[in-house]
Design a protein around this nucleic acid. Structure first.
Length: 854
RNA sequence: GCCGGAAUGGCGGAACUGGUAGACGCGCCGGACUCAAAAUCCGGUGCUGGCGACAGCGUGUGGGUUCGAGUCCCACUUCCGGCACCA
């Protein structure tokens, strides 16, 4: 064995070994237990970033570990290849998105290969290929026919200068990113998927996902947001006609305290009022400006205006004014609310601002009066007061009675309301999967026939920022109606890329299936046993995938209801962000790798300059590595300098997988040093002759070895891989105490190479073979601790007096709590610590601690 | 604003189910090897006081429960993720 660790040649050789044997290709084998290990597939943005390395290394550690435990493990890889950045790159470089995307895929694939991941590349897919997105389209037509896909209007960000729809990301401080023009809301026809039809199921099934983090289940639960409440009708007269304003409330018990109603700016009543009153028209206009993001809307100053319309309280008959308010969302419930200022903080603030009446109807500990100032207690449940026949009722009784009375009048009933909205999938963009609909003047919206799928996206267009270029392409637009055959126009909107990623996991299981979206092989592999990906996907991607899986089940394509049995949500890899303002007033993001930073004594950033030209740059905090903020760190330099194993080891060692990780390559030298030490130990081991060794030392090293291994195996079950990497270091430290190639050294190195091989497969592969342990470490059995090595004669106990640590006491093993106490009371050291004091109580945790209370 | 997280030495992090806080590593300090440097190896390293044995303090802040709290409870602060068209 050569003395010097040459990562590049070790890695090349190991990768060739795996490649030549097809080590990672897997087939369906009903005789073995299958394990489908999947990391979220990447968007081909150009280069891998550290988040990818982290994600795929975690997946690879799991894959290789389970393989060594004898399972049939599938780990595939593909490309989430449609999306907005390709259009932006196309505009910048005047190159079609397809070319940019495929170039990126080729480069990133070579990077993934150089990292030595155990991927079955024979299953590779890209969502921008017609043989993939054909099934998006086919599935959409199924949903359309079932009524699970439908058309209605949706609200989008509109750039009035470029005359184009903007993504939320393209709206900066309420202005279009290219034009700087104030963005408006615009309603356009769109296709929606009826995810709300599955709301109940998606919520209830969260309880049957023990392999998911509580945090994610909680977020999904809150997102779906089931509310049990009452739909209440407030009658009003308009143009001589009786109409009803419907609202939804979870606090029907406070209905007697409702003093006004408020409608959204998009509500028909607001539109009616705007026609007759220019001031209201101006207000509604004002609400129309600005972007559609909820985060922005929620932070607007609460404003409103009276519409001039009054409605009738359904129970008291009182005259109630109807207001239009910017905090009422058209998308939730009825787009209108009843306001009970005495018992709702937001209504209270609004009533105070506009001098609307406040009527307390719930008794609370602070008295029955009008709240001043607001306190959280006013919103709590209590007994009804000032509510006529409902006085004295508690929350549930009041809701029941009021709902019954409303129902008798035809003005309401109990209702379940969901926060979840149907999923709008239409995108007015070119680089995506075409929605397979034809618009026929006679037949309306007609889905494309199965035999005419896929609707192929022309790949040679270059968008110019003024909308979807498909709209200017007669060859795409002009078609004939699938139903009547007359000339018709093709839909040019493409699908949200979340559609592409809502079922790709099932497609990996059956590559090349061209007669059906998926075949019997999908039934073998599904569900995914372990899914790994960023916490930022906790809601949307995971919820959409759960929805799709249920629909696929109902279409008899799959047997399972849930796509992912176990979920590991990786923490994000963050990096510092820097920008400078260009003379043109644009914000130019500077990669942190190109920034030289000055810090004060506490590590705070004082100033920063760009390395190349010394231009001053501003620090904009740490944030997720993204193309848009140009703060992605390319792992390539790391791989080239130290090798893939060091990069893999370091990213695993740096932090537990679920932690957010602020990127810094300080410390990467330590990981490299460890692998060099491992190599040097291997070379020394190789050269040494077999020896017996000292019995006492052998025994203590074996104890160390097996207790570290036991802990590492436990840590693996928790997916705490950083301490598994530490364990490998501890084992090497222990082995270096041994004089040479003793039995404990042979055993220990064999354990170490197997334990470490999922993290640093190349060096372990090489040493395993070179030192004669076997042909392929990946084919060896996973190491288990030897119980006999863990037996001890004495166990150190911590001795505390009144909870303060005084020292330690070796206690013979095998004693129970009483025995330990007796031993401690009899010991000289304990007598010294206690002195003349009387012992009040002794707390013993056998194997750990003795606390003497005096 | 709403929903979900996080906070431990100079840094990344460890600590079983409430039981020795700081494992393992980085950095730093000292030493060996070297003409020298790099690489490597050995020792030290939470803070404060003390020559020292040792003592006091210490897990974002303020309270609480407990023989005992990084861990549990209450109230906050700051940072991160998501908020439906970034993926």
């Amino acid at each position: 064995m050569q003395d010097r660790y040459d990562a590049q040649s070790v890695e090349r050789e190991a990768q060739q070994f795996w490649e030549s044997r097809g080590s990672f290709r897997v087939l369906e084998d009903p005789a073995r237990s299958k394990f489908y290990c999947l990391s979220m597939f990447p968007y081909p943005s150009g280069k891998l970033h550290m988040g990818h390395v982290r994600n795929y290394t975690i997946g690879d550690v799991l894959t290789r570990h389970y393989r060594m435990r004898g399972m049939n493990v599938l780990q595939p890889m593909g490309w989430d290849a449609f999306g907005l950045p390709a259009e932006n790159a196309a505009m910048a470089n005047k190159v079609p998105p397809a070319k940019w995307t495929w170039d990126n895929i080729a480069y990133m694939k070579s990077q993934l290969k150089s990292l030595g991941f155990a991927l079955d590349w024979s299953r590779e897919l890209a969502t921008c290929k017609p043989d993939y997105y054909k099934w998006n389209q086919w599935f959409f037509t199924r949903l359309f026919r079932k009524g699970l896909a439908y058309k209605k209007t949706g609200v989008v960000n509109w750039d009035p200068v470029d005359q184009t729809v903007l993504a939320n990301e393209q709206v900066i401080d309420g202005r279009g990113w290219r034009t700087g023009a104030p963005v408006e809301k615009r309603e356009i026809p769109m296709y929606f998927l009826r995810i709300t039809a599955y709301a109940d199921e998606l919520l209830a099934a969260l309880d049957e996902l023990p392999g998911w983090p509580e945090q994610v289940k909680l977020m999904q639960k809150n997102w779906i947001g089931r509310s049990d409440g009452v739909r209440v009708g407030f009658e009003y007269q308009l143009e001589g006609e009786r109409r009803v304003l419907w609202v939804f409330t979870t606090r029907a018990d406070t209905l007697m305290g409702a003093t006004f109603c408020a409608v959204a700016a998009e509500h028909p009543i607001a539109a009616w009022a705007a026609q007759r009153d220019p001031k209201i028209r101006a207000f509604v206009e004002e609400c129309r400006r600005g972007a559609v993001m909820e985060a922005d809307l929620a932070q607007l100053e609460k404003k409103g205006m009276p519409t001039g319309l009054f409605c009738t309280h359904p129970l008291s008959g009182e005259r109630i004014p109807v207001w239009v308010a910017n905090y009422v969302l058209m998308g939730y419930g009825e787009g209108a609310v009843m306001a009970v200022p005495a018992h709702d903080e937001r209504d209270y603030a609004f009533a105070l601002k506009y001098g609307l009446p406040v009527k307390p109807v719930i008794r609370h500990p602070l008295g029955d009066g009008v709240p001043e100032p607001w306190r959280a207690q006013y919103a709590e449940y209590g007994t009804c007061i000032n509510s006529g026949k409902y006085d004295g009722l508690g929350y549930q009784a009041a809701v029941d009675a009021i709902a019954a009375d409303l129902k008798a009048k035809g003005l309401g009933e109990k209702q379940v309301q969901w926060r979840l909205r149907d999923w709008g999938i239409s995108r007015q963009r070119y680089w995506g999967c075409p929605i397979p609909i034809v618009h026929c003047p006679a037949c309306g919206d007609v889905p494309v026939k199965d035999e005419d799928l896929p609707v192929v996206l022309p790949e040679d267009l270059v968008p110019d920022g003024t909308g979807n270029p498909l709209n200017k392409l007669p060859a795409f637009l002009d078609t004939s109606c699938p139903s009547c055959g007359k000339p018709a126009r093709r839909e040019t909107d493409t699908m949200d890329t979340f559609v592409d990623s809502s079922w790709y996991f099932a497609r990996f299981a059956c590559p090349g299936s061209d007669a059906a979206m998926m075949d019997a092989r999908a039934r073998y592999w599904m569900p995914v046993d372990q899914y790994i990906g960023g916490i930022e996907h906790a809601i949307l991607h995971l919820l959409y995938s759960r929805f799709f899986t249920r629909v696929m089940r109902d279409e008899d394509m799959l047997e399972v209801s849930e796509p992912f049995t176990n979920l590991l949500t990786q923490g994000m890899v963050l990096a510092e962000t820097y920008y400078r303002d260009t003379p043109q007033g644009r914000r130019e993001w500077v990669n942190p790798a190109d920034v030289v930073v000055n810090r004060d004594a506490k590590g705070k950033i004082v100033s920063a300059k760009r390395a190349g030209d010394g231009a001053d740059v501003s620090f904009a905090g740490v944030g997720t590595m993204s193309k848009s903020k140009n703060n992605g760190v390319d792992p390539q330099a790391l791989i080239e300098k130290y090798g893939a194993d060091t990069a893999r080891f370091f990213i695993i060692f740096a932090s537990p997988p679920t932690n957010t990780l602020e990127w810094s390559d300080e410390g990467v030298e330590g990981s490299y040093r460890f692998l060099k030490r491992l190599w040097a130990y291997g070379a020394k081991f190789d050269a040494a002759a077999r020896a017996t060794g000292d019995a006492g030392l052998e025994r203590s090293v074996r104890f160390e070895l097996h207790s570290v291994l036991r802990q590492a195996n436990y840590d693996l079950t928790k997916h705490q891989f950083n301490t598994v990497a530490s364990a490998a270091m501890k084992i090497l430290n222990a082995l270096e105490k041994l004089p040479g190639r003793t039995p404990a050294a042979e055993e220990g190195l064999s354990i170490l190479l197997r334990l470490l091989s999922p993290i640093t497969p190349h060096i372990c592969h090489h040493l395993w073979r070179a030192l004669g342990f076997g042909e392929d470490v990946m084919q060896s059995a996973w190491p288990e601790p030897d119980a006999a090595a863990l037996v001890q004669d004495e166990i150190e106990h911590v001795v505390q007096v009144n909870g303060k640590k005084k020292g330690t006491l070796p206690v013979p093993s095998g004693l129970d709590a009483k025995g330990v106490e007796a031993f401690a009371r009899a010991s000289e050291a304990v007598g010294y610590w206690i002195g003349q004091n009387a012992i009040k109580r002794v707390v013993v945790v056998p194997g750990r601690l003795i606390n003497i209370v005096i």
